[in-house]
Simulated assay, not measured.
Amino acid sequence: MTNASHEAAPELIIRTERPEDIDTTHPLAARAFEGQPFTSGTEAGIIRALRASGDVMLSLVVEKSGRA
């Protein structure tokens, strides 16, 4: 039996999205749907419009080592 060195896993925090996260999450939403056979390419824009109208009920982000 050998001793394997283990690195500490980065701390992940799930939290409610903040306004300053939107510029990061918008392109991520666009990439998530990109190339899918069912996409219209408008999903990220729809999400942005829902945020602007106050119709998003829940949006979460994951922070890894302090970065969303």
Rank of each mutant, 00 (worst) to 15 (best):
G45M: 02
E34N: 03
I14V: 15
H26M: 09
P27G: 08
S59A: 14
E43V: 02
S5D: 08
R51M: 04
S65W: 07
R31Q: 07
E17T: 11
L12E: 06
H6F: 11
T25S: 13
E34K: 06
M57G: 12
I22Y: 04
L50W: 08
P37G: 00
G41C: 06
S65E: 12
A4Q: 08
K64W: 07
T2L: 06
L50M: 12
A49M: 06
P19M: 00
D23C: 02
M57Y: 10
T39W: 01
T42G: 08
T24W: 09
A49N: 12
V62K: 13
T2E: 09
L58A: 13
T25K: 10
E34H: 08
D23E: 12
S5A: 08
M57F: 08
E63T: 08
D23F: 05
F33Y: 05
F33S: 04
S40F: 08
I47V: 15
E63P: 12
N3Y: 02
R48M: 05
I13G: 04
T39I: 00
T42Y: 05
T24S: 13
P37V: 00
L50I: 05
Q36T: 00
A52L: 03
R18C: 07
L60T: 14
E7L: 14
I13K: 13
L58C: 10
R48L: 10
T39K: 00
S40Y: 04
A4R: 08
H26G: 02
A68K: 07
V56R: 05
R15M: 11
M57I: 03
G66S: 07
H6D: 10
I14E: 12
D21K: 02
A29R: 14
P27F: 04
K64V: 15
R48D: 13
F33G: 00
T2Y: 03
T42P: 00
V62S: 15
E20A: 13
V61A: 13
I14W: 12
E43C: 05
A8Y: 10
R31L: 09
V56Q: 03
R15S: 14
L50R: 13
G35T: 00
L28F: 06
E7S: 14
G45I: 01
R15K: 12
A29F: 10
G41E: 07
D55V: 00
I22A: 06
L60R: 15
A52Y: 01
S5F: 05
P27I: 05
P37S: 01
P37K: 01
Q36D: 03
